[in-house]
Amino acid sequence: MTAGVPDGSAVRLALLTLVSAAALAFAIAVATAIGDYTIGLGTVFLAIGNGLGLTGAELPPIEESVVWDLRLSRALVAALAGAGLALCGAILQALLRNPLAEPFVLGISAGASTGGVCVIVLGIGAGSLTLSAGAFAGAFAAFGVVALLSNGATSGPNHTILAGVAASQLFNALTSYIVTTSGNAEQARNVMFWLLGSFGGVRWPDFQLLLVVVPMGLAVCIYLARALDAFTFGDEDAAALGVPVGRIRLALFAVTAVMTATIVSMVGAIGFVGLVVPHAARYVVGPMHMRLLPACAIIGAIFMVTADIVSRVIVAQQTIPIGVVTALVGVPFFALILYRARPQT
């Protein structure tokens, strides 16, 4: 890859990678240390070392347990979820050629909420189905509707966006209908709280699942990074550059749907990460995807872990839904993009 990197920027790239990896490790360590019961960073590292079998330090069992059993898995899930959502945002912005595209543009969060409501409120599955499974099924149902409305992703980007809007409206209406007719405010509140996102309930099995899904998604996307670049001037242009447009679109939409649905069913529909992070990453590494996608993954991870820390410390003794934190950062950024987006001449 030597000749692929123009003069001097190879060093900068290596430096950026190093710095961001260190930042991510630091953020995860801080996220593990901070909480109602604050633990020293040194203890955190020793506890992690013990857990991995690298060190054999004597630590208070409660601290070791808090670090290993509760907080570390939470921080790692946050990192992977952030990476995955940011990646999905970057892909959809490229494929749909729309700077405001994000993972939920395909109606996935609306579908997930309908699925969640079906399980919690209607009791579909009679206890055998978890909230996550319901949300996953709902997310995929919504994606299916979008795929159907946009002719299996073969029609243009605007068509797909409109199909996503239609699907979101449909599934939001279904959710509202179910919630209002069931008349159980407590259940409705639970669903809404879950939808705004929370890392509260995640444990190691969640991390293991994401550890498969997100890196695999990243690998597929990196493999198709060149093809994504070719979409810069639109579908027809990509085709003229030898990209099998229909197949690539469908493959990437499917990868996005799997990643988003998995993340949403685990931690709720956390908005704005997928929108904000790709734009931030483009400022740092430019628009070409071979670099943009890894950058999105790492910045998304740092952003989400940091947002999780903020959500836990901003109000004492209380955890703010993570979606509230990401949105409070995301909305001003969204406004900035709108402001900067010049009309086409």
Partner: peptide, 12 residues
């Protein structure tokens, strides 16, 4: 194939 005035919003 060179198409007529293909445009992009990306800052390439």
């Amino acid at each position: 194939f060179v198409q007529q005035s293909a445009a992009t919003e990306t800052s390439v």
